[in-house]
Simulated assay, not measured.
Amino acid sequence: MSWDPGGATASQSKLYVYLKFLRMEQTFFSLPMAYLGALVAIRGIPSPSVLLLIFSALFFLRIAGMTNDNLADKEIDSRNPRTKTRPLVTGAITTKEAKILIAIGLAGFFISAYLVNIWAFILSPIVALVTMTYPYMKRFTAFANYQIATVQGLAVFSGAVASLGVSASSLTQVLGSVPWLFVIATILWAVGFDLYNHIPDADFDRKMGLHSFAVVLGNRALTFAGLNQLFSVILDLSADFVYNLGPISYVSTILHGAIMAYAFYLASRNQFGKAFYYNIYSSVVLGVGIDLDILLGIPFM
Rank of each mutant, 00 (worst) to 15 (best):
R139N: 05
G165D: 11
A267E: 03
Y196G: 01
G6E: 13
Y16M: 11
S170M: 13
L292P: 09
Q147R: 03
V151S: 00
F241P: 00
F193D: 00
L39C: 06
T95S: 15
V288P: 06
A144K: 02
F264S: 08
G226E: 09
M66W: 06
L129N: 03
S124V: 03
L227M: 13
L296I: 04
D77S: 01
T172G: 15
A120S: 15
A221S: 14
A8K: 08
G257I: 06
F110G: 07
I199S: 00
A155S: 13
V17A: 14
L175T: 11
W189V: 01
I259T: 12
A239D: 07
L195R: 02
S47Y: 02
L195I: 04
P32S: 10
V251F: 14
Y136C: 02
S249L: 04
L129C: 01
A120Y: 05
I280Y: 15
L181R: 11
A239C: 06
G287V: 01
P200V: 02
T94E: 11
Y277G: 04
T95H: 11
V116A: 03
G273T: 01
L237V: 03
F110K: 04
I104M: 10
I234H: 09
D201W: 08
L39V: 05
S47R: 14
L58N: 11
R43F: 05
A225N: 05
S169T: 15
P5C: 03
P46L: 08
Y35V: 09
S56A: 15
I54L: 04
Q147T: 00
A103L: 13
G192F: 06
H256E: 13
G176H: 13
D203F: 00
P46E: 07
A221P: 06
E25R: 10
M208L: 12
I100H: 09
T9A: 13
A120N: 06
L255W: 05
I63W: 12
L52G: 10
E25P: 00
S249K: 07
V216T: 14
E75I: 07
I298P: 02
K74T: 10
K96E: 14
G91F: 10
F241N: 01
A92I: 06
Q147C: 01
P46R: 11
L245V: 00
D77A: 01
L31T: 08
T95E: 15
W119V: 01
S49W: 12
A263M: 02
K74S: 03
T85S: 13
L295N: 04
G209K: 13
A160F: 11
V166T: 15
K84F: 06
L295F: 14
P200R: 09
D77Q: 07
K207F: 04
T150G: 04
A258W: 12
T27R: 10
A103P: 02
V288H: 05
L123F: 08
R86S: 04
K274L: 14
V127Q: 02
I234Y: 08
D73L: 08
D205W: 10
T172Q: 12
A142V: 01
V116P: 03
I259M: 09
N80E: 11
Y281A: 14
G289W: 12
R43L: 04
V233L: 13
L58R: 04
I148T: 02
N70T: 10
Y134K: 03
I259Q: 07
S163N: 12
K74M: 13
Y146N: 00
A144T: 03
A261M: 09
S163W: 11
S158N: 11
D205C: 09
T94A: 08
